[in-house]
Design a protein around this nucleic acid. Sequence first.
DNA 1: CTGAAAGCGCTTACAG
DNA 2: CTGAAAGCGCTTACAG
Lengths: 364, 364
Amino acid sequence: MIRNSSAPPTSWEVARRAGVSQSAVSRSFTPGASISDATRSKVMDAARELGYRPNAIARSLITARSRIIAVVMAYLENLLYPRVLEEFGRRFAALGYHLLLFTGLKDRDSDPVFDQIMQYRVDGIILASTGLSSALAEECLAAGVPVVLFNRTTGRPGVCSVTSDNFAGGGKLARFLVASGHRRFAYIAGLASSSTNRDRQAGFAAGLAACGLPPPVVQVGNYSTQEAAAATRALMARPARPDAIFAANDHMAIAAIDTIRSEFGLSVPGDVSVVGYDDVGPARWPAYAITTVAQPVDRMVAETVELIMARIEDRSTAAESRVVGGDLIVRASARRPPRGLVERDGQLLYLGDTALPEPRETDR
Amino acid sequence: MIRNSSAPPTSWEVARRAGVSQSAVSRSFTPGASISDATRSKVMDAARELGYRPNAIARSLITARSRIIAVVMAYLENLLYPRVLEEFGRRFAALGYHLLLFTGLKDRDSDPVFDQIMQYRVDGIILASTGLSSALAEECLAAGVPVVLFNRTTGRPGVCSVTSDNFAGGGKLARFLVASGHRRFAYIAGLASSSTNRDRQAGFAAGLAACGLPPPVVQVGNYSTQEAAAATRALMARPARPDAIFAANDHMAIAAIDTIRSEFGLSVPGDVSVVGYDDVGPARWPAYAITTVAQPVDRMVAETVELIMARIEDRSTAAESRVVGGDLIVRASARRPPRGLVERDGQLLYLGDTALPEPRETDR
DNA sequence: CTGAAAGCGCTTACAG
DNA sequence: CTGAAAGCGCTTACAG
């Protein structure tokens, strides 16, 4: 590999060495371009000798396609998101797209972040774990850049989103806990600004209502370990201690279980049942064994990629909200109901009890 | 905001609207460029009206600086890496740099990944969690792109790296366990190709040797939950069951603890002590409370950023390997020694026992 | 199939 | 301080 300077070689240098035009070099690296085998192989030889790689930046400029997708994922502490990120990495790599990651941001102003994203002329934007979702989505819409909200929705129509069926999931958990004989229900809420949190809570309350029960006592955990622990303390200090706690995600359910066991010396599920949402890795660890509603990450990522790619192909494609279902996976953090359990693929699922009423969206 | 077409406005359009030259527009967006306040404010007004943002792609092409850093992080399952990623995001954003993330890759060939990275003409590369480190580092070196290995080293001199002092950490754990009266030592190894794993093991063995003890029994866990569980089973099935297990990282220590408790019905640390490495979030969860050596993530990230930026400024800067120390944090997963414990910042640390010999690098 | 040429949207000497 | 112009490294009609 011969290199005359420290700068990477250009298509002109390859052209000179191969004895062809610069256009021929470009065509050799463009799948489907009209070029003879003989020319292409001369070019490829020269390219190899020089260590040439097409400059994606220059290509982006002329084609107005960067093949870069911005992913905004402010917080990675909840293991759901790292898993999601890996899956996005895999899928987009297979399509020849790359990920520009915006993480570790404090939730202040959305404008600077958005400016950065737009300056790189990304082909699409995925908004996952961020308090900025709504504001950013708004700006993307105005700028005409394809955007998909992942694991959240916004009131604004015209914005694509992919979520699991949080309302139904909350309802399933309510019926599961009622069927297991619990009587005093509590909910540890996530961020108030999160649609996912609101839907889970609404579904939970609707599920209880359908069974003739009042809404749960609510304490706010804001998806944070510290705040969820504090919320648990507040709940456990009540005169009428709850016997079933639904934490808006597994990450907070872990904090709740730890707090109940280590600070109150009580047993989970002996004294109080705790259920979560997501089915992240630690939910499966024997120390927690959380009964939870699974979010089908692979499926959700696949749908998101599909929505983004369709809108990159054709920007006028109408907005769409995809909702995918998730199973209630029964483990050991909550007392179990006498019936309705089914084993599938080595996992115990709760499919419901026909004796119990099913809440509907209209109950919301 | 007026927009005539769907394409974002260019500096020419801003120039026309502001009644100045295109150069003036460019200068208005270049900090330190020579431009009058009057002209700049005319330009800024026009830019705001049109929704103009400089095209970073075009800028990159002409300046030969993309302000993009590639981060290769194949696996995010170990929570250390998401935390590291967030910190990189924060620090590079503050410097006006962006992260192109390569994750979710299977460890096959390094070439395709490297090709992708190079096509975007990134200004620097950080190689963190990947089996491809050595091969990729080699290619970066050949291509003259600044590269820093994070949490690993390569035999090759000339490659920058940032690690914690894994050898010393392994030694500290050995002395800690010896001082606590353990006699039968085991090591659950990470990937054989990982320098971090090798250093921890070497330090552990050297620490034991300095106390006149033989090397630990070794089973390989390859940093995987499944394999670490299998390794634990193999260790616990031995006639002379170990009374102290050092898992090469916390992620595997968790699997070991779960396996010992749930499959063997034994107590940690009552029947067997388990120690780890990293001090990731779950190590602090009461259910595990892992005694572990902390990796000072913020410090390691800061050093990495410093190394990368210095080499972006001046490519001829000589390679450097930075090693930062980490404390042994004492929690409840291992029996404690009678002395040498000190409380600092609300954490219990093991500072060593002067009665015990300290292993040295030369013992390796 | 091939090459000469225009142009993507900027930055930056250069001359005034 | 300002503008005209060259040029970054490509893609892609256009003409042959």
